[in-house]
Design a protein around this nucleic acid. Structure first.
Lengths: 112, 112
DNA sequence: TCTTTACACCTAGTTATTCTTAGTATAGAG
DNA sequence: CTCTATACTAAGAATAACTAGGTGTAAAGA
């Protein structure tokens, strides 16, 4: 994953991962990497601020706990977050369909 | 189209549209809107600078002409641009597949 | 014991690129 | 004579992901 292909789509991914149930930030990173077959191997500096932003926006709630001496912050989708996930899914569908339509028109280069 | 969903994907779209043959900037905007069924209705301030950037990077070449009193700058893919299109197509495929994988796991909300 | 690795969190500042806004100019329709 | 469509441009704002650095605990290995 290079460039800023992710821009505008990160929230969707985070909300989707968290829709399975509560999860702490580090686990979100792992889950995202596994689910995407290593395509989304996101740095902590990307994910943590995004989670904070989503919580501030009311899409997530968080709770602190301590597990084996390590503090954890577990995030959970709020109702608003669940609604946003639905909307973002729809938007992603529209976006990816539109890209596919544009790409369909032009020919493929010689697949080397 | 809201937010910055486009970020990092604009070049792909421009290269794809231009791979059909030479085209001037305004026509690129129209073509992109039509091909995407109005999803990509991009402002000139987005497209023109992007075309300049792509030309500067050697992905496009341009030529001025005057048609019915209006000056036009016609852009065309270079070999490098054609190569980049192939690579960007591949990257898009990987990206969209990865998003689909992440989304697949989590359940859909009640489709209202 | 000491070091390294994995876990788990954080933030400030940089970067990249799209969008906003505003401007120039011609042609044609009303 | 004005408005709309065509056609191009550039400066600055805005956003969000990334870089780079930091804190601290636990467990494994040398």
């Amino acid at each position: 994953m290079r460039g800023q292909a992710l821009k505008g789509h990160l929230d969707l991914l985070l909300l989707a991962v968290l829709s399975d149930g509560g999860m702490h930030g580090y686990a979100v990173i792992d889950d995202l990497r596994e689910r995407s077959d290593d395509t989304f191997d996101l740095p902590e500096g990307t994910v943590y601020p995004a989670l904070h932003r989503l919580e501030k926006g009311g899409y997530l709630s968080s709770e602190w706990s301590v597990v084996q001496g390590r503090r954890r912050r577990t995030y959970r989708l709020t109702d608003r977050g669940r609604g946003a996930l639905g909307e973002q899914r729809r938007a992603w569908g529209e976006f990816s369909d539109a890209v596919a339509s544009v790409l369909k028109g032009s020919p493929w280069p010689s697949t080397s």
